[in-house]
Design a protein around this nucleic acid. Structure first.
Length: 174
DNA sequence: GCACGGATTTCC
DNA sequence: GAAATCCGTGCG
C-alpha cells in the first residue's frame, strides 16, 4: 500500500495493483538509458527512494528506486486500489493525482519518511499476479517486449489497456 | 542554444 | 484519432 500525507496532514492511501519494472543501464525503455544524468540520477542511487517526474508536460509518474547503489532500477506504480481518501487511481498519472504526489516528492526516502512511504497491507498472491509487456514503450525495440508489467488479476482498478496476460512465475525473475 | 518527443489522459 | 503542454536529451 502506498501512503502519502500532504501538507495539511491529510492521509491518502491505496493498495498497489499494477507496476512496471525498469532495470539496468541497457533497458532502452528506461530513463536510465542515457546514463546517471539529470532526472535519472536517482535511479542510479540507493533503493527505496521516490522518483517522481513530469510526463507530457502535465502528468506526474511515481516510481520507487530499486537495485543496488550504482546500478539503475525503478518500479513505476501504474495503478492503486482506493483505500483512504482516494477515489480512483487506474493509471500512473491518476495515481499521483489521487495521492497528491508531485515533483515535490522527488527524492524522498520512502524508508525514512513519515509522509510518503509504502506499507505491506494485503499482499497479492502469486497466483493472482498477471504478467505482460510494458505500456507506452514501443520505441524501445526488443525491450518493449520484455514482460515487465505486473498487475492483479481481474482488478477493476488496473489501467485499461489491452494486454497479453500470462501467469506469474517467481522463478522467472533472475 | 534549439528542436524533438515522451513510462498519459481526456475528449471529439 | 488528436490535442494539451513542459522539460530532458541530443545535436550543433
Amino acid at each position: 500500500m502506498l501512503v502519502h500525507i500532504d501538507h495539511e496532514g491529510i492521509r491518502r492511501a491505496g493498495c498497489i495493483v499494477e507496476t512496471e519494472a525498469y532495470v539496468g543501464p541497457h533497458d532502452a525503455a528506461s530513463h536510465a538509458r542515457s546514463g546517471p544524468r539529470g532526472r535519472a540520477t536517482l535511479m542510479y542511487g540507493k533503493a527505496g527512494v521516490a522518483y517522481v517526474y513530469l510526463i507530457y508536460g502535465m502528468h506526474h509518474c511515481f516510481n520507487a528506486t530499486t537495485e543496488q547503489d550504482g546500478y539503475p532500477g525503478a518500479v513505476l506504480v501504474r495503478a492503486i486500489e482506493p483505500v483512504e481518501n482516494v477515489e480512483r487511481g487506474n493509471g500512473p498519472a491518476l495515481v499521483c493525482q489521487a495521492l497528491r504526489i508531485d515533483r515535490g516528492c522527488n527524492g524522498v526516502d520512502l524508508v525514512e519518511s513519515s509522509r510518503l512511504f509504502i506499507e505491506t497491507a494485503s499482499p497479492v498472491a502469486d497466483a493472482d499476479v498477471r504478467v505482460g509487456p510494458r505500456v507506452g514503450v514501443d520505441y524501445a525495440g526488443e525491450w518493449a517486449t520484455h514482460p515487465w508489467r505486473f498487475w492483479k488479476a481481474d482488478s477493476p482498478h488496473v489501467s485499461r489497456r489491452p494486454g497479453t496476460a500470462t501467469t506469474y512465475d517467481p522463478a522467472m525473475l533472475g
